[in-house]
Design a protein around this nucleic acid. Structure first.
Lengths: 168, 168
DNA sequence: ATATATTTTCAATAAGTTTTGAAAATTCAA
DNA sequence: TTGAATTTTCAAAACTTATTGAAAATATAT
């Protein structure tokens, strides 16, 4: 397979993959393009390579920056801004985990804690089922949360070495 | 907080939460409703409680069944079909992991393996970056895949006991 | 068999999300 | 400053996805 063909496939699949994870197609495609580009790219490079508008590139690169996955880089003697993606996939993964934990898991756990305080007689099966379900989800989520915290702090070699040996 | 209010909040947040995970809002809401219902519900119960159409309930319950999260149950002497959700949150989580692995991760790893075979000179920095990136993602994904396989086979007490002690 | 209840399907529609593109704002060099 | 280059914004348009509702199919009771 030729590089150009492989690139196109990678970008397109990474985009489709992203949509299953609440990330929009274009944002994931821009990320994919930057991941395989040895050098930083400009807005115009991205527009041209992905056939998308300037506004679209602007919004999505900004979003990628807010996720901590892409950086603006200044290149000596160039007027334009360049964009570059973090290439270390372990860092990419921990960064995504960190952000999603903050944006989704933490608020959900907070809410579940409140909902567990519902009034009413635990003898009522409706109340009981509600409290049991919410409590069960909260306990599970709390454990996942702790586990993810450790992963975020760990570094890859520790993770790969110890954890995968543990999971023989 | 009253039960009715807490229920409404739980259903609405679980729906919003679902959208971040590639699950549509209504499907997640139906799932939430069934999770907190002590008894199985009919199509009409779900339509009424969530204010949605019959067709919508039908499609989304079918989808939940295909994800292995909901079962049809027959109730003695009743003409209508009833729906009931798996309440054990550990089983829910492993079931979701299993399905998403099959639907998303496994095909992605297969593709990445193919893309690594790209033609061209590794001295070319474009080829090198492509192969490095794709290879890195594939290695990471393969490890995650193995780890998830172990989790799926494990049971909750093993997981909570050993893994969380490991992650002290 | 027939009538009635129930579930399923799916074309039309509604709702939600993404993208465009041109105008406004900003940056920077001379 | 001024003006050219560049980036940002955002309302309108395009596209995508979800929902409705009524007709068709299926199941069940009499």
């Amino acid at each position: 397979m030729k590089l150009s063909e492989a690139k196109a496939q990678f970008i397109s699949s990474w985009g489709a993959f992203g949509t299953h994870w609440g990330i929009n197609r274009t944002m994931a495609q821009i990320h994919a393009l930057l991941l395989i580009s040895p050098d930083p790219l400009t807005q115009d490079d991205i527009m041209e390579q992905l056939n998308i508008s300037r506004g679209n590139v602007n919004m999505n690169t900004r979003d990628l920056i807010s996720w901590g996955l892409v950086d603006r880089v200044l290149i000596q003697g160039e007027r334009k801004e360049f964009f570059s993606a973090e290439k270390d996939i372990w860092k990419v993964a921990t960064q995504i985990i960190k952000e999603r934990k903050k944006r989704e898991l933490d608020p959900m756990l907070k809410l579940l804690g409140q909902l567990e305080q519902v009034d009413g007689d635990k003898k009522d099966k409706n109340v009981k089922q509600f409290v049991d379900t919410v409590g069960g989800i909260r306990k599970f989520g709390t454990q996942a949360d702790k586990m993810l915290d450790v992963m975020i702090k760990a570094d890859e070699s520790w993770f790969v070495g110890s954890l995968l040996k543990f999971f023989k």
